[in-house]
Design a protein around this nucleic acid. Structure first.
Lengths: 344, 344
DNA sequence: CTGAAAGCGCTTACAG
DNA sequence: CTGAAAGCGCTTACAG
């Protein structure tokens, strides 16, 4: 076998509990108990052992612990698209939230094309305690089931109502309605909608709520384009398409990165003024949305609350396989900026 | 103990090698060998076992394997700042590169303020095979040594020449000189420099090379500001400071996200034209650098090559503790865009 | 090539 | 409260 990571040259083996126990003259069980909160061990013995451990730089081997407790304290985080700036922010907050309750994050970056089950096989072999799926797209229902069966699982920003699975999701209906209402108040009447991936639940919820609401308000849907992905480039292409075919005076993009691409296309490629000629709104409130050139009106996804709910479910065990699954909708908030100013 | 992730309710225990072996009527060793590439086992036996395994949905338990091989196939990735869009892109490519050679990524998101060694303690307890440190900042030399001692380690974009540690880094000197040369060709003569964190090696290299080069070229350094962090907001603040005090006709920002903030401040807050009044260049080539409003001239960090080199070092074992450490400089490339157009 | 057995370093009933 | 011992599910010399 090739050398490479893990070959043993140069690595000093760390000291074990048994060795430490022998040095102190206690049993190995005692050492284990000293490191187990709530274990039945005399306070002084624990102190003594911890002191020696410190001196000898002993740390319990987590791998051995995993094996005997059949619990890893590892959460698998399944992601597919870090190019949408919304995800890095979420992942960062999430992994920090998990760290706070003693859970580590094992990152699974799935890519289109290659065999996804193969990419996720480590999820099962490593016996992660829980799976958090952030990639709204990419995973079919079957793969999702396969990847999460028999273990705690939470989907973020993807909803599967029928299947027995936990979902934590921004309130897309609330958000899409808020955008529609906002367009209406601004006097916009010919609106268009741009989706990222039309079949995703995130999109369906936003799209249906938006279209329903504009109909209620007596506005016209002048165009609907599917970008094919949630990206800056897709937003540009979609905006061009809408500008070419429709006379929309407002566009709601399914998320911010699409909207930002859209604004650039409208201004740079088509020569439209945003917002004077056409209002643009997005969804998420990524950092770039507040950059002055875009000043994008958007519906904020409450990252902190989402993370709090997810971490809470992991902490209280309510996402365990035995438990009834739930769909948690987290309320967001409309952020009005310049991209939806008055007609000019 | 509280319920929570890992409590056993509802989880079916997966089948073990011993159970599978009994079903087939072979030894447990045989099952293990069937799953070990290169193990001495008859081809037919292996096929038979793999077939049964498939049927019974048996997968070797990676935790047990880790314990007996004392090798985890896990790489700890230490990150501190995912808000700079350069890092998500790097992490994504890196984790995919690692996955390709069978390594999983355990993410460590360290945060200012709290105890870093505590946050990194899992790095040791989990016995990761290797540590990749991406956070240029945050880690003191001592912490770095503590976190990586005795195991394979690679620093990305941070260089510690004296310590015995592996570094993979974009050629900052090449990049900073290229920017200086480019400013000079454009006829700019009064240049300023903005750092993110002045004490980081990344900054020192870029700054020193830049300042040295402009001196060689007979240009004047009219200002130097430290942003205090690599962020959009810091870039804005720094640009304002420079605009207020100096009459610079070009600014080199230590990275793109600073430069983008700088452009916005110059245009929105100070009313300067970029590039007609002042040229702006950055470093990294993040996606936003190519957005038309910024069209930022920058020095591209070759992400793919960096990842290739890192993965290669992990694969061939050259980053093992026993091996001599090395500093690998990866060559980048100047990307000229509109932000450094001719004087207007 | 194959199996029995020791061992990886913990946890945790069990008995005292 | 404490220790001896079985067990977590693999890997891998060792003997055949």
């Amino acid at each position: 076998m090739a050398r490479g990571v893990g070959s043993s040259d140069g690595k000093r083996r760390p000291i074990t509990a048994r060795e430490l126990a022998r040095m102190i003259g206690v049993s190995q069980s005692a050492v284990s108990r000293a490191f187990t909160p709530g274990a039945s061990i005399a306070a002084e013995l624990r102190q003594k052992i911890l002191k020696f451990a410190e001196e000898q730089d002993y740390h319990p081997n987590a791998i051995a612990s995993m094996l005997s407790k059949s619990r890893t304290n590892i959460v698998g985080i399944v992601v597919s698209d870090m190019s949408n700036p919304f995800y890095p922010a979420l992942i960062q907050k999430l992994s920090q939230g998990l760290q706070r309750i003693g859970l580590q994050s094992l990152l699974f970056n799935i890519t289109k094309g290659s065999n996804i089950e193969e990419q996720l096989s480590a999820l099962r072999r490593y016996n992660v305690d829980a799976v958090i799926v952030i990639s709204a797209t990419m995973l079919s229902g079957a793969t999702l089931h396969w990847a999460t069966e028999g273990r705690a699982a939470i989907l973020i920003n993807r909803v599967v109502e029928d299947a027995d699975i936990n979902c934590v999701c921004c309130d897309n209906v609330e958000g899409a309605r808020a955008i529609a209402d906002h367009f209406h108040e601004l006097g916009r009447r010919r609106v268009a909608y741009v989706s990222g991936l039309s079949h995703t639940t995130t999109n369906l919820e936003r799209q249906n709520a938006f279209i329903t609401r504009i109909a209620e308000l007596g506005m016209t849907l002048t165009g609907r384009v599917d970008g094919g992905e949630y990206s800056y480039e897709a937003g540009r292409r979609a905006a061009l398409e809408i500008a070419a075919k429709n006379n929309a005076d407002a566009i709601f993009f399914a998320n911010d990165i699409l909207a930002i691409g859209g604004i650039d296309a409208l201004r740079e490629d088509v020569g439209k003024r945003v917002p004077e000629d056409i209002s643009v709104a997005g969804f998420d409130d990524i950092p770039m949305a507040s950059w002055p050139h875009y000043a994008l009106t958007t519906f904020r996804q409450p990252l902190d609350e989402i993370v709090t709910v997810v971490v809470g479910m992991l902490e209280d065990g309510s996402c365990q396989p035995g438990q009834p699954s739930s769909v948690r909708r987290i309320s967001g908030g409309l952020i009005v900026r310049h991209s939806t100013g008055p007609l000019g």
